[in-house]
């Protein structure tokens, strides 16, 4: 009965992620325009929209995806991520133009004060051949397996403790992981929003490094936890290394499944982050207090 309830909860969470993924896919570009006679006294944020600025904006403009066309005046910075930025000849922008993975259309004077971070889009074309997909999967499995083995060799107890946290208390781990995922996501997003400030780029790099370290440690713990489950099911005297390898292969297959793959990736990531947060990298010490081994005698 308990197992059935657990299975139901897991299925429910999976479906929520699946519907979320389906909901955000294939949205049309809606147009948002600021007419000539309008003066906005604050900044503006759009997500996958066609933003047409004919009037004036007194603040920073931040656009994720979509298209942004400026014909009026912007008293601040314009940041566009994975979209298109157009600035007309007669437009006035007092701040910087920051384009991340976004093409720019404008005159040379505007190009000079632009900070451009080009992102090539050649690694995940829409129609990858199945051989190419398999190659990438094998590469990921090799890397994951080697990192897992190395981390278990160097930090055995820490990985075991974090894995145990996932195996025994996966629900609080999931909630803690969700909290940390949202927090780190917002931190990354915030650092991009202040990219025009000198603190922005270095903050982005340091947060990315932090996220990567936590994610690697967390994912190794998730693989270890799954390997433990598999070790119980598999025939007796099967080595732990076989279970670990099987766990990584199962996760890789789950992550590359159509529609459900992104949800699986997110769940694994959240569980890993949560376990790392709750056990403080497997040391089982508090983040704010240093617990000592104290005996009453």
């Amino acid at each position: 009965m308990k197992n059935a309830w657990g299975l139901f909860k897991t299925t429910l969470i999976l479906f929520c992620f699946l519907f979320f993924n389906l909901a955000i896919a294939g949205q049309d570009l809606a147009q948002v325009s600021i007419p000539k006679n309008k003066n906005l006294s604050h900044g503006y944020f759009t997500y996958k929209k066609f933003l047409l600025i004919d009037g004036s904006v007194d603040g920073n403009v931040f656009c994720m995806g979509g298209r942004t066309s400026v014909h009026g005046e912007v008293k601040g910075n314009i940041t566009v991520i994975f979209g298109v930025l157009e600035v007309a000849k007669d437009a006035k922008v007092s701040g910087k133009l920051i384009t991340i993975g976004s093409p720019f259309v404008g005159i040379q004077e505007q190009v000079d004060k632009r900070i451009d971070i080009p992102i090539r889009d050649v690694f995940y074309p829409n129609n990858l051949s199945w051989l190419e997909l398999m190659k990438r999967s094998i590469l990921r499995i090799i890397i994951a397996f080697s990192i897992c083995s190395l981390l278990i060799m160097f930090k055995p107890k820490h990985i075991r403790e974090t894995g145990r946290e996932i195996r025994t208390d996966w629900v609080p781990t999931f909630f803690a992981g969700s909290f940390l995922t949202v927090f780190l996501g917002m931190a990354l997003f915030g650092s991009i929003m202040i990219f025009a400030h000198p603190l922005g780029p270095i903050l982005f790099i340091s947060i990315s490094a932090m996220v990567s370290i936590i994610a690697i440690f967390g994912l190794v713990s998730v693989f270890e936890a799954i390997a433990h489950y598999l070790n119980r099911i598999m025939p007796p005297k099967t080595g732990f290394a076989h279970s670990l390898f099987l766990a990584i292969v199962i996760c890789e297959i789950g992550c590359t499944l159509p529609y459900i793959g992104p949800a699986v990736q997110l769940i694994l990531f959240i569980l890993g982050l949560g376990a790392t947060l709750l056990t403080r990298f497997g040391s089982n010490k508090g983040w704010l207090t240093k617990s000592k081994k104290v005996w009453s005698a």
Partner: peptide, 19 residues
């Protein structure tokens, strides 16, 4: 390494590393 045909966390990490 961080690329998958489905858009997901792998691609997010790919973008982060790229930036």
């Amino acid at each position: 390494l961080f690329s998958s045909p489905e858009s997901g966390l792998l691609n997010v990490f790919h973008h982060i590393f790229n930036i």
